Computed example of a mutant assay.
Amino acid sequence: MHEPVPERHLVDADATQALGAALARSRPPRAVVYLRGDLGAGKSTLARALLRALGVTGTIRSPTYTLVERYPLQDGGEAWHLDLYRIADAGELEFLGLDADETRLWLVEWAERGAGALPAADLVVELAVAGDGRTVRLVPASTRGVAWLATLPD
């Protein structure tokens, strides 16, 4: 992995949503994002904000029970939001019919449960509860991730 961007404090859900929007505005044409953090750390909030900023309309569901939710993107292709908390083995992902060629953006919660069956991350977003807010570390995991963070506003 590459050097992380310094840790940021997100004072509330609005700050988390602003980060999601900033990531959406600066994202590369194809990207894989692993969202890490305990339950309630803000992973789904960040994913929803990112998808909304990319023009996804209608309900943005948490994939906790469906494992994957697919969203058409305005600029073509699809974004997939995966929540792998409920899987026991990475082999279970075979049954989801994941096709990396169709997917322009992967947002993966609990990616460690799908190790070996997922594309490698370009960016790892580490979220943690900190008082009433959250902390976030953005860790580039590929040259694409480094370039993405270089264009992200402070």
Score class of each variant (00 low, 15 high):
73 L>V: 07
91 G>D: 15
29 P>T: 13
143 T>L: 10
121 A>M: 07
18 A>E: 10
86 R>H: 04
50 L>A: 08
140 P>E: 05
145 G>N: 09
18 A>G: 05
64 T>H: 11
90 A>K: 04
97 G>H: 09
95 F>R: 09
42 G>I: 03
102 E>L: 08
47 A>G: 15
96 L>F: 09
94 E>I: 02
73 L>E: 07
148 W>D: 02
105 L>D: 03
33 V>G: 08
94 E>K: 07
140 P>S: 06
55 G>N: 09
7 E>T: 14
104 R>L: 05
82 L>T: 03
15 A>V: 06
109 E>G: 09
12 D>Q: 04
115 A>E: 14
70 R>A: 15
47 A>Y: 09
67 L>E: 10
93 L>G: 14
113 R>W: 03
137 R>A: 14
78 E>M: 11
19 L>T: 02
72 P>K: 02
80 W>H: 15
48 R>S: 13
38 D>V: 05
2 H>K: 09
130 A>H: 08
47 A>T: 14
119 P>G: 10
73 L>Y: 02
53 A>S: 10
32 V>I: 11
26 S>V: 09
13 A>S: 10
107 L>W: 00
65 Y>P: 02
45 T>H: 11
29 P>D: 15
137 R>G: 03
79 A>P: 12
128 A>W: 01
154 D>N: 07
1 M>C: 07
57 T>D: 08
112 E>S: 15
31 A>Q: 13
105 L>C: 05
28 P>T: 11
41 A>C: 05
7 E>P: 11
37 G>D: 10
12 D>E: 05
47 A>V: 14
46 L>N: 07
68 V>K: 05
43 K>Y: 01
104 R>T: 07
9 H>Q: 11
63 P>T: 03
82 L>G: 04
119 P>D: 07
114 G>H: 12
36 R>I: 00
139 V>Y: 00
50 L>E: 07
94 E>R: 12
129 V>Q: 03
91 G>Y: 00
2 H>D: 12
111 A>N: 13
151 T>V: 06
23 L>N: 04
105 L>Q: 03
103 T>H: 00
107 L>G: 13
104 R>K: 14
64 T>F: 07
150 A>N: 10
47 A>W: 06
62 S>F: 01
19 L>V: 04
64 T>G: 14
21 A>K: 08
73 L>I: 06
150 A>F: 02
146 V>H: 00
132 D>S: 13
13 A>I: 10
77 G>Q: 11
99 D>M: 04
142 S>A: 10
22 A>Y: 01
5 V>L: 15
118 L>S: 11
111 A>E: 11
64 T>I: 13
88 A>D: 15
84 L>Q: 05
112 E>M: 00
27 R>L: 14
60 I>N: 11
17 Q>V: 03
122 D>S: 05
46 L>S: 10
78 E>D: 15
15 A>S: 12
35 L>R: 01
110 W>V: 07
126 E>N: 12
102 E>Y: 00
135 T>P: 06
152 L>T: 06
39 L>T: 12
13 A>P: 01
76 G>Y: 04
15 A>Y: 02
76 G>D: 11
152 L>C: 08
7 E>W: 00
39 L>K: 09
112 E>Q: 15
8 R>T: 01
